[in-house]
Design a protein around this nucleic acid. Structure first.
Length: 498
DNA sequence: AAAAAAC
């Protein structure tokens, strides 16, 4: 019936224009493909070479004894490949000072954030973002490598603090990520005198109809697609002066089974009313399908991609554990994970469904273990409370759906449990490789050590795990005998956590 | 047979 032809609702884009744009995009993509394969192969190679050879010195000026986050290991981002478009040559930045940022912004980076030097992805992309003619950018880089700083700096450096109108928009897949990005932006931009609105649905107690809302006069708006669209269509967010539009977790924002239609609409509408603006797409993952689509959407932009085999973080050790049944999963978490995991830092347990968060939570609290759980159906106030308690370190173990799979940044998380393996919707044993990568990326933020336990129960789980190993070309060692404490202890020691 | 975002 409604299988194939999912009739999109065109609330604020007219169909004609869309069809026209599609045809044009296809033509231009074909032309681009034809020309890019023939033009200056050597120039591209030279650019790639230059980027690959870039190496960052370890931080030497960090106060000794302080727990300063280590700079990204060269090895982690070594395989980044960049292609610049249209002959613009960019010089990678060795220091933040190279980027001609305002003194206020530099102060924010150094004094407030405690950053001494750009990470690799920052060194490569920041010149591309900040140099006129402000080309669009698609950038892929490892989890925890500092992508947020790239686009936050981009937004902060492009807005005029004296103008009280939105000039930059950032769109995220979850409310938590929008709030987190806003928090980072406010810290980094602490000294430049701008404000930022978070466009997410309010908690029930704060509900105000959109029509009664005052217009947003903050320079920057960060939010989730539904609310952003609502605010824009109701003229609460003016888009005519938007200079930069950011999609965080861009592969998901542009995936067919993700937020593609919303994202396309926003892109088109904002580009139109602002008379063109810079578009930045950032993510740790771009599967081939999305990559194809993205490179058609961003025609004349710079591109940075990483091979999938190079995406697993060396410092995050993955393990698999054979578990006989569901009850045993709880037992393992209770006896092994809690035992060792909590000594080691904070833990996130990923499950497949909202109901599972409750089930696992109940099973564990019955046993008097302190943990909390989160999923998208909780009231906004409750979601915020749970996140706050976890970020404050008050709770050590958090059970979550994939609402937190992407982007959630908590340095103390160094243990991730896949209670359920991530599966592509509609399949039984086809792994969701991107979700897997994002989940394990919750550990090992910014080069820290971490461990992941994949709890495998039954044949399909093993099939899924095997496919994941093949896809990333990475053998995942097995923790033998789930009843044996030694196995887990050794694993955590090998991961450098004990 | 789902998570997410909104309605």
């Amino acid at each position: 019936m409604a299988d194939k032809a999912s009739p999109e609702k065109k609330s604020w884009a007219d169909v004609e224009e869309e069809e026209e744009a599609k045809a044009k995009a296809a033509a231009e993509a074909a032309a681009a493909a034809a020309s890019s394969s023939s033009t200056s192969e050597s120039a591209v190679e030279a650019q790639v070479k230059q980027i690959e050879s870039l190496s960052l010195a370890p931080p030497e000026d960090d106060a000794a004894g302080e727990e300063a986050p280590p700079l990204l290991d060269d090895s982690d981002d070594a395989q980044i490949q960049a292609v610049t478009s249209g002959g613009t040559v960019y010089e990678s930045a060795t220091t933040f000072e190279d980027l001609k940022l305002s003194p206020e912004l530099l102060k924010g980076l150094h004094d407030e954030m405690g950053f001494s030097r750009p990470s690799k992805i920052q060194a490569i992309t920041l010149p591309m973002i900040l140099t006129p003619p402000y080309k669009d950018l698609v950038a892929q880089a490892h989890n925890g490598s500092g992508k947020t700083t790239c686009f936050v700096l981009g937004m902060l450096s492009r807005v005029d603090p004296n103008r009280r109108i939105p000039q930059a928009i950032c769109i995220c897949p979850t409310r938590e990520l929008a709030q987190q990005n806003k928090a980072v932006l406010m810290r980094m931009g602490k000294f430049i005198g701008i404000t930022c609105a978070c466009a997410i649905p309010p908690a029930q107690k704060d509900y105000v109809p959109v029509s009664k809302m005052p217009p947003i006069n903050d320079q920057i708006v960060i939010g989730t697609s539904g609310t952003l669209i609502k605010w824009i269509t109701n003229k609460k967010v003016a888009t005519r002066e938007i200079k930069i539009l950011v999609f965080d977790e861009a592969d998901h924002m542009l995936a067919e089974d993700g937020f593609r239609s919303d994202s396309e609409r926003m892109m088109r509408d904002i580009q139109r009313s602002a008379g063109g603006c810079q578009v930045l797409l950032f993510s740790a993952t771009f599967n081939e399908r999305v990559k194809d689509f993205v490179t058609k959407v961003i025609k004349d932009g710079n591109q940075i991609f990483v091979k999938k085999e190079d995406l697993t973080l060396e410092k995050v050790k993955q393990y698999k554990v054979q578990i006989p049944d569901e009850a045993a999963k709880i037992e393992v978490i209770r006896d092994k994970i809690f035992e060792f995991g909590q000594k080691v830092g904070q833990v996130i347990i990923f499950v497949r469904t909202k109901q599972s968060t409750k089930n696992v939570h109940n099973a564990l609290t019955r046993e008097d273990y302190v943990c909390s759980s989160i999923q998208g159906s909780l009231d906004q106030a409750e979601r915020e409370k749970i996140i706050q308690e976890f970020k404050d370190g008050y709770t050590k173990v958090l059970i979550s759906t994939d609402v937190l799979a992407r982007g959630f940044d908590q340095a103390q998380v160094n243990l991730v449990i896949n209670y359920d393996m991530p599966i592509k919707f509609g399949t039984r044993d086809e792994p969701d490789y991107e979700v897997y990568l994002h989940r394990i990326g919750r550990a090992g933020r910014f080069g820290r050590k971490g461990a992941v336990f994949n709890l495998l129960c039954g044949e399909t789980d093993n099939v899924v795990m095997k496919k994941i190993e093949n896809y990333f070309q990475h053998q995942v060692p097995e923790v033998r005998n789930w009843k044996n404490e030694e196995g887990f202890e050794t694993a955590l020691k090998d991961a450098g956590l004990l």
